[in-house]
Simulated assay, not measured.
Amino acid sequence: MENCGIVTKKNNFNRNDIENNINEFYCDDYSYETIKEIADFLLEKTQLRPKIGIICGSGLNSLADRLENTDAFPYEEIPYFPISTVEGHVGRMVFGYLNGVPVMCMQGRFHYYEGYPLAKCSMPVRVMKLVGVTHLLATNAAGGLNPKFKVGDIMIVRDHINMMGFAGNSPLQGPNDSRFGPRFPPMAKAYSKDLIKICKRIIKDMGSENDVHEGVYTCLGGPNYETVAELKMLRTIGVDAVGMSTVHEVLTAKHCDITAFAFSLITNKCSLDYDSSDEEANHEEVVSVGQSRQEFCGDVIYQMVRAIHDEEIAKDN
């Protein structure tokens, strides 16, 4: 992490020293003031004021190409933004209209395995919050652990298991700024039941119920794929799909009171048998399956955006 670490210019600390100089002891790259500066930069350059934010996963970046009347900002042009280094991630923030609804879309995300701390990976979610976003729709590519899943299926994320969090790695580590959210945010309802119902209704209308499931997702650090033993362990504890993103983004969204929804595109079946070498995962397959199913995934998000917008308008009236 940049500009992080314990400051050692004093030999003796007391509680008041720490509380009064707390930013000296923690990475403060993404303070509230910095996040606001990023949000203000974007708001000054676009007239759109979206309430819905979208994060595109591997191979699903074409969703952003459906936006109309767009204002697009490459990550390298946005102050304090990292750069996405992964094949299949374009690397820009796009504002525009999707199905007539203003949205803010990340065309490419940041990952822990790229060398970024989790706070930096999920920083754009806080930017969305200060832009005015109230709903987050996140997509990802994932390996299917549930034997009922087949390649190309969609798994609506009902819940997650935060394996990285079990190891003490969280985007919320360090001092808590109550302007974002509480010190100890609850996670029992991390994924909105209302948004899940909307998605399931849309899927039913599309006649694609057999291709869509609900399940539990987990994020691992990567960039390597998992061993057979690791996958067996994950399946034993109830994981249906495994990837390298989303959990910390949803955790950050929940912390700052953004309603969250996520789905996984099953791009490969995980190897649970040492003799099934033909099921060994690779990134080329992930991107290829994502591209082959991007129209279907895009149709789902396209209709969800409209449904969310219409329901929020109805509530206001």
Rank of each mutant, 00 (worst) to 15 (best):
Asn3Trp: 05
Asn3Tyr: 10
Gly5Gln: 08
Phe13Leu: 15
Asp17Gly: 13
Asn20Pro: 09
Ile22Cys: 11
Ile22Pro: 09
Asn23Ala: 12
Tyr26Asp: 10
Cys27Met: 06
Asp29Phe: 05
Tyr30Asp: 06
Ser31Val: 07
Tyr32Gly: 07
Thr34Met: 11
Lys36Tyr: 06
Glu37Ile: 01
Asp40Trp: 01
Leu43Glu: 03
Arg49Ile: 01
Pro50Thr: 01
Pro50Ser: 02
Ile52Ala: 04
Gly53His: 05
Ile54Asn: 03
Cys56Ile: 03
Ser58Met: 04
Asp65Lys: 14
Asp65Pro: 07
Asn69Ile: 05
Ala72Cys: 12
Phe73Arg: 04
Pro74Phe: 08
Glu76Gly: 00
Phe81Lys: 02
Pro82Ile: 00
Val86Leu: 03
Gly91Thr: 05
Tyr97Ser: 14
Tyr97Phe: 13
Pro102Asn: 04
Arg109Ala: 06
His111Leu: 04
Glu114Gly: 05
Gly115Ile: 02
Tyr116Pro: 07
Cys121Val: 04
Met123Tyr: 00
Val125Ile: 15
Lys129Asn: 05
Val131Phe: 06
Val133Ala: 06
Thr134Met: 01
His135Tyr: 03
Leu136Tyr: 04
Thr139Ala: 10
Ala141Pro: 05
Pro147Ala: 03
Val151Glu: 13
Gly152Trp: 11
Ile154Met: 11
Met155Gly: 11
Val157Ile: 15
Val157Lys: 03
Asn162Cys: 10
Gly165Ser: 05
Ala167Gln: 10
Asn169Glu: 10
Asn169Ile: 15
Ser170Ala: 04
Ser170Arg: 00
Ser170His: 00
Leu172Ile: 08
Asn176Thr: 15
Asn176Leu: 08
Asp177Met: 08
Arg179Val: 13
Arg179Tyr: 08
Pro185Thr: 09
Pro185Ala: 08
Pro186Asn: 04
Met187Asn: 08
Lys189Ile: 11
Ala190Gln: 05
Ser192Leu: 08
Lys193Arg: 15
Lys193His: 14
Lys193Pro: 14
Lys193Tyr: 14
Asp194Tyr: 04
Leu195Gly: 09
Ile196Ser: 15
Ile198Pro: 07
Cys199Lys: 04
Arg201Pro: 07
Arg201Gly: 15
Ile202Val: 13
Met206Ser: 10
Ser208Cys: 13
Glu209Phe: 00
Val212Asp: 12
Thr227Pro: 11
Ala229Met: 06
Leu231Arg: 03
Lys232Val: 03
Leu234Ala: 14
Arg235Gly: 15
Arg235Leu: 09
Ile237Met: 14
Gly243Asp: 02
Gly243Tyr: 00
His248Ala: 12
Glu249Pro: 09
Glu249Leu: 05
Val250Ser: 08
Lys254Ala: 12
Cys256Asn: 05
Cys256Ile: 04
Ile258Thr: 06
Thr259Trp: 00
Thr259Cys: 09
Phe263Asn: 09
Phe263Glu: 09
Phe263Tyr: 12
Ile266Trp: 02
Asn268Gln: 05
Lys269Pro: 10
Cys270Glu: 13
Tyr274Met: 12
Tyr274Leu: 13
Glu279Gln: 13
Ala281Arg: 01
Glu284Gln: 13
Val286Arg: 03
Val287Ser: 04
Gly290Asp: 08
Gly290Ser: 08
Phe296Lys: 11
Asp299Val: 07
Arg306Pro: 10
Glu311Ala: 08
Glu312Ala: 07
Glu312Asn: 12
Asn317Pro: 02
